[in-house]
Each structure stands twice: as structure tokens, then as C-alpha cells.
């Protein structure tokens, strides 16, 4: 499997994503610079975490209009899987790859900690190696992860089974107390309709190595390899 990682000047999880991908696939990902308007043939595109252009405007708003994102959107339209993590999720919603927006966290503070996630489906290339209903532990680190969509959109997302992960307690209960940022329906990760684009605020690349305190993120990368190789 050949992956590409998009690199904006303010990306700061690009290396972490590249390390996790290289570890899983055995080959380094292609690094796509933000000014690139063309990409080589790849099986997966990762939009990593960070602060693409500083995000002094709405997070991801400028990045969504960058040359590389025009090509990423085109590839997504042709079915290339896109994994959009944290700032990548923000960029993906701004670029129209995913519905809804990510607002400031409900308590207005940046939050960095492990959270528990409930896996909603294993019928996707991203989550095949998890079990539906499985509780996994993955860190978040963001100030704008508060997922919002209007009522009609939210109903459609739920009806089509587009929610990938929900914030939950250690026992899997989806509660308000387990929601770190005020996201509607505790949404932590979201698919597009075709389930070829996954946007998620948690960072699977940060817990894919037991020395870092856990490896629940690793199954996402092995899922992708199994699906795309």
C-alpha cells in the first residue's frame, strides 16, 4: 500500500502519521506539499493534525482552499480513501468532504488527553480490525473539536450510519460526562456516505506503540493495509 501525507506549513503531526504509516506498511508515505496541485498514484491520503496555516481564521478554512486540497477533493471523488485526523478533520469539513463543522470546544479550552471511543462499525476499510461496539482508547489534542451539524444533516448522518466513533466512558456508555468537547451525539469520527473518507478528532497515530502507553490506534493502520494492499 502506498500512502500520501499532506503537509501544510503548519502541520505538526505529519511526521507522527508518516512514522505510523511506515511502521505499518513497511514503506515511507509520499509527502504532498501544500502547494502541489498534482499527486502521484496513491492508495490512501492522510490529512494530518496541526495548524495548517496557523488557523487564526476558522480552523481549516484556508487549507480547504489550498492547491493540494483541490487535488485531494478530486481524488476523494474518484474513491481514494482519505483519513483526516484532527486538523485534517477540520480541513475536510471546510473542503466539503464531510458534513458539519468543528466549533470551539464547549469549555473554550484546548484539551489533550486519552479518551475512550466506541467503534460503530467494522464494515469500512478504516475499522475492519475493530469490532462494532468495541471500546478503544486514543488521545485527543484540540481546541476546536466540537462537532456540529444542523438537525436534518445530523438525522441523515445517523440514518446512514456515518458515525465512525463516539466519545464514551471506559465501559462504553455514551454519556455527556464522557464528551470532552460538546460534540453533538458524542461524535468523535465521521464517514462520508461512501465510507471512503474518515474524519476524526482523536489521533490514532499517537497510540500505535505500547511504549507510548497503548496501541489501540494500530488496528486502524492494519485495517487500511488489509483493505488497500
Amino acid at each position: 500500500m502506498q500512502a500520501a501525507v499532506v503537509v501544510f506549513p503548519g502541520s505538526n503531526c505529519d511526521r507522527d502519521a508518516a512514522v505510523a504509516l511506515a511502521e505499518a506498511t513497511g514503506r515511507p508515505p509520499y509527502l504532498a506539499w501544500h502547494r502541489d496541485s498534482a499527486l502521484p498514484a496513491v492508495d490512501l491520503i492522510v490529512i494530518p493534525g496541526g495548524f495548517a496555516y496557523g488557523d487564526y481564521l476558522r480552523a481549516g478554512a484556508m487549507a480547504a482552499r489550498s492547491p493540494v486540497m483541490r487535488e485531494v477533493v478530486a481524488r476523494a471523488g474518484r474513491g481514494t480513501p482519505i483519513l483526516a485526523i484532527c486538523n485534517g478533520f477540520q480541513v475536510a469539513t471546510e473542503a466539503g468532504l464531510l458534513p458539519g463543522v468543528l466549533m470551539r470546544n464547549a469549555d473554550l479550552r484546548f484539551v489533550c488527553r486519552d479518551v475512550h471511543l466506541k467503534v460503530e462499525s467494522d464494515k469500512t476499510p478504516f475499522t475492519a480490525h475493530y469490532r462494532p461496539g468495541q471500546v478503544i482508547r486514543i488521545p485527543i489534542a484540540h481546541a476546536e473539536g466540537n462537532y456540529f451539524a444542523d438537525a436534518a444533516t445530523l438525522a441523515e448522518i445517523e440514518a446512514r450510519g456515518q458515525v465512525a466513533f463516539r466519545y464514551c466512558a471506559a465501559d462504553g456508555a455514551v454519556t455527556a460526562a464522557a464528551n470532552p468537547n460538546g460534540s453533538q451525539h458524542n461524535i468523535a469520527g465521521l464517514f462520508n456516505r461512501a465510507r471512503t473518507v474518515l474524519g476524526m478528532m482523536p489521533h490514532p497515530e499517537r497510540l500505535a506503540d505500547p511504549l507510548l502507553g497503548g496501541s489501540d490506534g494500530k488496528a486502524m493502520f492494519t485495517s487500511l493495509i488489509a483493505a488497500l494492499s
Binding site: 505538526n12 503531526c13 511526521r15 507522527d16 512514522v19 505510523a20 493534525g49 479550552r109 484546548f110 484539551v111 489533550c112 488527553r113 488521545p139 489534542a141 489521533h203 497515530e205 499517537r206 506503540d209 511504549l211 507510548l212 502507553g213
Partner: peptide
């Protein structure tokens, strides 16, 4: 305090 700091970016923090 420290939950407001990204203490894991660079994926090498082995004691938080």
C-alpha cells in the same frame, strides 16, 4: 493545566 498543553505531539512522550 497540563491537559491544555499538547504533551504528546511528536509521538515520543513515554512519560506524560
Amino acid at each position: 493545566i497540563w491537559q491544555q498543553y499538547d504533551h504528546m505531539v511528536m509521538a515520543d512522550t513515554i512519560q506524560r
